[in-house]
Design a protein around this nucleic acid. Structure first.
Lengths: 139, 139
DNA sequence: ATAAGTGCAAAGCATTTGCTTTGAA
DNA sequence: TTCAAAGCAAATGCTTTGCACTTAT
């Protein structure tokens, strides 16, 4: 199965493509970490300094509302955004270094649906973050 | 098994008990919803108007750092705090009404530990939020 | 053409902080 | 008595917005 790119999904829902949006989307697609909005802005700005941070904020909000991006909050007061459909995964945050590890566990995904159903709800989204300390061998 | 109250845990870790802190803790213990800091402040203030919102912020931060409270963020820009040990549970948020349902699922708790371990980490905390729409029967 | 997008700087909000006064131990 | 805590208001930091200008369709 071939997933659609962010741009393709934008076109599909009729989001007008401007130079800034194309650039911001490219930065998003090229990032394999979890940049906050400020970082996104810096990366875009390095390529083309005709992008303002207001536009970055506006763009990620539009893409989030269109269901194209997903908003992450790692308890540090800043928002991060990532592709909502490509590589769905949850996050494990190393509380010492801040490193973020992505993982996916089908069993957990399935149980979440089950729990929601049991409570009388249809699951439309979820957020799972694990916070951990590195296991230094077994001493 | 009898769990300790917030005040008892405060005393144990040597947090100085002032009238304001006692009041804020009482409000926390009496709340069975998930008040944000502003709401906490309003409730405390209604009982005794000698409490400032700065103190509420300072108090919840201290209790959080002592591991007594847990910070919740429901994607609305405000922070909420709740007892970290009493009634551990996760949350299902009704995206239409904002209602928050608490639940606990031992199986999911256990799987989270397992996943962290597999990734080389010791789980020290987690955040699980489900977002759902009410199931209106089966039509 | 024209409705939508952008930049800039100002405004908004939740949260934090500096400083003086108050109070717990 | 003495150092931590509180109150107040100013400051901060992330995010949003008003307005004049620009651009995609």
């Amino acid at each position: 199965m071939m997933l659609e790119t962010i741009s393709e999904r934008c076109r599909k829902v009729g989001i007008r493509m401007t130079g800034q949006r194309r650039l911001i989307i490219k930065v998003l697609e090229d990032s394999d970490d979890h940049p906050d909005v400020e970082t996104l802005f810096e990366r875009a700005n390095k390529i083309d300094n005709k992008v303002s941070i207001a536009t970055v904020y506006r763009t990620v909000k539009i893409l989030k509302n269109a269901g194209i991006l997903e908003k992450l909050e790692f308890n540090d007061g800043r928002s991060r955004f990532e592709d909502a459909v490509r590589n769905h995964h949850d996050h494990l945050i190393d509380v010492d270094s801040g490193t973020v590890i992505e993982f996916i566990d089908e069993e957990i995904e399935h149980m979440q649906k089950k729990i929601a159903k049991k409570l009388g709800y249809e699951l439309i989204g979820h957020k799972l973050e694990l916070y951990g300390k590195k296991n230094e061998g077994n001493h």
